[in-house]
Measured scan of single mutants.
Amino acid sequence: SEEKKKAKERLERLGASSELARELLDRANGNAEKAERLLRKLL
């Protein structure tokens, strides 16, 4: 979806690899905010 694509791009801008961004979104069930929080914990 367009929303998921935007979320993935945002995670990548924050420093996630394409693969990591995809994994985070999967774990967050597509929830962009939750995926971002997970990423911030990792960085």
Rank of each mutant, 00 (worst) to 15 (best):
S1K: 10
S1P: 11
S1T: 12
E2H: 12
E2L: 13
E2G: 09
E3I: 10
E3M: 09
K4H: 15
K4R: 15
K4M: 15
K4T: 14
K4E: 14
K4P: 08
K5A: 11
K5L: 11
K5E: 13
K5M: 11
K6Y: 09
K6W: 11
K6M: 10
K6C: 03
K6Q: 12
A7D: 08
K8D: 03
K8F: 15
K8R: 15
E9S: 07
E9H: 07
R10G: 05
R10Q: 06
R10K: 09
L11Q: 01
L11P: 01
E12D: 01
E12I: 14
E12P: 00
E12S: 03
R13A: 14
R13L: 13
R13T: 08
R13E: 10
L14A: 05
L14Q: 05
L14V: 03
L14N: 03
G15K: 03
A16D: 02
A16G: 03
A16I: 06
A16T: 02
S17M: 03
S17G: 06
S18N: 08
E19H: 09
E19N: 07
E19Y: 06
E19V: 07
L20P: 00
L20F: 06
L20Y: 03
L20W: 06
A21I: 07
A21Y: 04
R22Q: 15
R22N: 14
E23G: 03
E23P: 00
L24E: 01
L24S: 01
L24K: 02
L24P: 00
L24G: 00
L24D: 00
L24V: 05
L25P: 00
L25A: 05
L25F: 05
L25Y: 04
D26S: 09
D26A: 12
D26F: 12
A28K: 01
N29Q: 11
N29A: 08
G30D: 06
G30S: 03
N31F: 04
N31L: 06
N31T: 02
N31K: 05
A32N: 03
A32F: 15
E33A: 14
E33P: 06
E33T: 09
K34R: 12
K34M: 15
K34G: 07
K34Q: 14
K34F: 14
A35C: 00
E36H: 04
R37E: 15
L38F: 06
L38I: 08
L38S: 04
L39C: 00
L39I: 01
L39E: 00
R40I: 14
R40D: 07
K41E: 15
K41L: 14
K41M: 13
K41H: 12
